[in-house]
Design a protein around this nucleic acid. Structure first.
Lengths: 217, 217
DNA sequence: AACTTTTTGTGAATTTTGTAACAGTCGCGG
DNA sequence: CCGCGACTGTTACAAAATTCACAAAAAGTT
């Protein structure tokens, strides 16, 4: 019944989009929703939505749909976003600053507690209300506050060293915004934000579309 | 020979990572490289690398490997990153500012020409050396400069409206940094940066890893 | 020169992901 | 209370992506 074994990465990636739409639907005062409607709003096929929702274990009723509230709860629980977890951010450059200012993280059960940077000029300041601390404070604080997740947005060539420092401090999950490929022990999970990859897909898609037109499709 | 039909999206997404590593290898003075080495550096299987490189049409020699220079050229050509294309950015908020300051885009054959924003206080200023213009200037300038690509990083609820404005101005490819699902005509390609999706994968992976340990794996 | 090692390139097997088909349930309107 | 349209949940099927297996080529080694 409960799909514990199968991972279905693509489905997991789509869940946040459903969550967002569902919350918007709730705003509108909707109580129930069908996969047909969700699919329409998100430009997907209804069958995709149904399959994706299956992994959360939430169940709807035929002829009616799913309860919006149930789905929101189910997805949040499946993702572990129902109780917020604290996270550290390392690298208060342009990107780090933007992330620190992003309000939406609370939606994802994420709370950036503090930022860390090697630049002495930044240490001691605040960015978007979050304190910027020196790298030397990281390990101690991570242990004391039992922080398990970290956002990495330092320059590429510093990435590996910082990652190692994180691991040594007990970090178990690294959200990697740098282009570097991190080398971490087996017990640490990592997820890389691959902007270049997305752009590559866009470039190729555009080129193909234009070529198609030339051929007079 | 030339794989023109097959798309292989995952392969395309990995190409930029190879490109990065190859350039670094070139820095180090390397002339040839094997898929074994590339795989090792990027924490992949060599067969994955081999299959991915296949779509670029670049060919190596058995027992030796690929010429680094050939691969760099081949990948850049495949992605259309060999000659830079100009791009507009709309939404000079925190994220937009970060993107405007990102030096790495030239690696991707991308040149942000100008930013656009609705906020009158920002219009007329410069961010990281790029001029910030009013939204009313977009259409005219896009046509005059023959710009086909745009980066969208406005607030979620403005996304659709701005996208429509872009389409009307002749934009053919939209790189969407908002959470919104864009509704655009068939002849426009779009690529969404799905941060929440990546985080979802990270969350689930971490939860699973921790559960695994509890069971005493 | 024969042999070993490294490595490419490809066709085939396997797994994963996406799509279709359909039986069965629910609520509604006569 | 019967039939109809909307919708779920599941099973079967198709497509895509990954992994395997192996022949053949280049370079070095004995």
């Amino acid at each position: 019944m409960a799909k514990d074994k199968v991972q279905k990465l693509p489905s997991i990636k789509r869940l946040p989009a459903y969550l967002r739409e569902l919350k918007s639907l709730r705003e509108e005062g909707r109580q129930v929703v069908s996969t047909t409607l969700l699919a329409q709003r998100l430009r997907l096929e209804s069958i995709v939505v149904r399959k994706d929702l299956e992994i959360t274990g939430v169940t709807g009723s035929p002829g009616v749909g799913y309860k919006v509230e149930d789905l929101i709860g189910g997805i949040e629980e499946f993702l572990g976003w129902n109780n917020t977890s604290d996270i550290f951010l390392v690298g208060a450059g342009a990107l780090g600053t933007a992330l620190l200012g992003y309000k939406g993280f609370s939606e994802y059960g994420l709370n950036i507690v503090a930022a860390f940077d090697a630049d002495p000029n930044k240490v001691g300041t605040e960015i978007h209300g979050k304190p910027v601390l020196g790298m030397d404070a990281f390990a101690n604080l991570a242990e004391r506050m039992k922080i398990h997740m970290a956002i990495l947005c330092v320059p590429c060539d510093a990435a590996q060293a910082v990652a190692e420092l994180m691991v040594a401090a007990g970090i178990r999950a690294i959200w990697n915004f740098t282009g570097a490929t991190l080398n971490v022990p087996e017990h640490v999970v990592r997820q890389r934000v691959n902007l270049a990859g997305d752009l590559a897909v866009l470039s190729v898609a555009l080129a193909e579309k234009l070529k198609e037109e030339q051929r007079g499709s």
